[in-house]
């Protein structure tokens, strides 16, 4: 288990760094796909089968395809050099991110012995589509409905953003 975990975690972090640091957006997108895939592996390790599948299907499948389409459309314009900006801001940003990580580690360290000891016992159907579906459609029905509305709104928004006017104005 540990080996799988290390490999997946390493791939995850490495591809993440790659996403953030590449200048060619296409490579960044590809790196993100790798990130998503390794995350899917981690989800499997955490007994979240449905979510792993959804991750690959939705995220890696649909969302990243959208990204690649747009990158293709943009062509050369999508080239993304590293940012300029004041060095103060840049150091501040790095400091903030590192601080965040450090804080989390500290918190975890404080709680490591007590709360994070043993994971709960779960049945085999934990994380299965049936279980997720049942929960989604009973206890969290409202979230389900609202999510669907959000998606509808996004679709409409996308159409609106994409329409051109007849006179040739983009």
């Amino acid at each position: 288990m540990w080996i799988v975990w290390f490999l997946a975690a390493g791939a995850c972090l490495g591809s993440g760094i790659a996403v953030v640091s590449m200048t060619n957006p296409f490579y960044s997108a590809l790196a993100l796909i790798g990130n998503l895939a390794s995350l899917a592996v981690l989800y499997l390790l955490l007994a979240a089968e449905f979510l792993a599948a959804a991750q690959v299907l939705v995220y890696a499948g649909a969302v990243m395809v959208m990204f690649v389409f747009v990158i293709a459309y943009l062509g050369g314009r999508a080239d993304a050099p590293w940012a300029g900006g004041s060095p103060v801001m840049q150091t501040a940003a790095v400091v903030a991110a590192v601080a965040l990580l450090v804080e989390v580690v500290v918190v975890l360290g404080l709680a490591w012995g007590d709360e994070l000891k043993d994971p709960a016992q779960v049945s085999d159907s934990f994380g299965s589509p049936a279980a997720i579906g049942e929960l989604f459609l009973t206890d969290h029905l409202l979230a389900f409905e609202i999510t669907s509305i959000v998606l509808l709104v996004a679709a409409i928004g996308g159409v609106v953003l994409g329409t051109t006017h007849e006179k040739g104005r983009p």
Binding site: V20, A80, A83, A93, V94, A96, A97, L101
Partner: peptide
């Protein structure tokens, strides 16, 4: 999360 936030704060291309 930290890596992602670094990317948001330090890159200029909206795509990235």
């Amino acid at each position: 999360f930290g890596i992602g936030s670094l990317g948001v704060m330090l890159r200029r291309s909206p795509l990235i």
